[in-house]
Write a protein that binds this DNA or RNA. Structure first.
Lengths: 194, 194
DNA sequence: ACTATCATATATCAATTCGATATAGTCAAT
DNA sequence: ATTGACTATATCGAATTGATATATGATAGT
């Protein structure tokens, strides 16, 4: 899925600026399973405007930079829904430097191994909290998407959020249960083979 | 982590061709947490050769294309280990078209929603089996990496593999427990609001 | 018997995307 | 005072993907 399609999807939840769309992918609704950088979002919005998929209104703000508030056109909405029906989803891709590095735990000082594991766990604990769509502590920009008139998140969003939390929690649990065993084994090997 | 570093890491487990390195990221040891395509691996190996990090021997094969078998130089090995110590790992990035699409479940036919969920579960079940480093059914190219003299996978590899399996299993479990609930709710909503 | 398709193997390249940087103002903190 | 963080848009070089080309053998379907 290209960034243009991701932007259309982001705007399905209502109007937003390019900056706010980035936040949805960085902090917000989509953050645990999609990525899009500013360097791709702004050109995508320009292209979508040219193609009549979105329109924008320019808002001058006092003491702040101007805003361009983007909105789906009916054609943009139709195009996105058609894409949903026709797209064969690409394979999931998960990329983790930490796990790659941990693969070489035997070649590293044990303190580094432990630090990497702790960081991995901490990141997933944080993410698990961030994902919760009903978490009241979250800033507004994390709440853009997929809510109905009552402000409740859509069933699809809840399902995906729950799935993300389950994955994070499983990660944290596995580390809690297996970290010490790994460190002990690494220490043993170092003692026996110097 | 750039593809050059990933290639050095792949060659830590022994000599390999570019094609075999791709398989490690596609099918093999690294497949569930790193990605590298042929279009980036071959140029990376060329660059690494120029920089003295790897060397290769050309093998002519009867009735098959020639092979270039790459091997780490001692400088390549040193460089990789230094990189391990000095690199701040980037944030993990997970990208899933299916989860993005499922976010819009309310806008799709229920059959599509169910098909997407089933595919997601099937992919994760498959991956969970593929990850197992002791699975005897796996083809040779999935066994390249991180084994000691006895052929046992390294502790780091086992830990990372176990973590990957835990994530996959949690995903499958969540779907088993929550899929029907989502479909029921979607059907209810469709019945009430046409 | 014919025809796909897949697997091995390397290589190239256009299109996409990332990541860093530039600009610019507000606000809070040290 | 000045450093860093947040809002906001925009651009661009560098890295990477994904598709394609080339060559051959094996396997499987019709």
């Amino acid at each position: 899925m290209d960034v243009r399609t991701l932007c259309l999807g982001a705007l399905m939840g209502g109007e937003a600026t390019g900056y706010e769309i980035r936040k949805m992918f960085d902090d917000g609704t989509f953050s645990h399973f999609q990525i899009a950088s500013l360097g791709s979002i702004y050109p995508a919005l320009t292209k979508l405007t040219q193609d009549g998929m979105v329109t924008f209104v320019e808002h001058e703000q006092e003491n702040k930079p101007d805003k361009k508030i983007y909105q789906l056109t009916s054609e943009g909405r139709r195009t996105f829904l058609r894409t949903l029906l026709q797209t064969r989803p690409a394979e999931d891709r998960y990329r983790s430097d930490i796990l790659f590095m941990l693969t070489f735990a035997e070649e590293m000082p044990i303190e580094l191994t432990e630090a990497l594991i702790d960081e991995f766990a901490a990141r997933h604990e944080l993410m698990s909290m961030q994902i919760d769509p009903d978490n009241p502590d979250k800033p507004a920009h994390q709440k853009f998407h997929g809510r109905d008139e009552d402000g409740k998140p859509s069933p699809g969003c809840c399902f995906v959020a729950g799935l993300g939390q389950a994955m994070c929690n499983a990660t944290v649990k596995f580390i809690r249960e297996n970290k010490q065993g790994l460190l002990d084994e690494l220490r043993n090997r170092k003692a026996n083979k110097p």
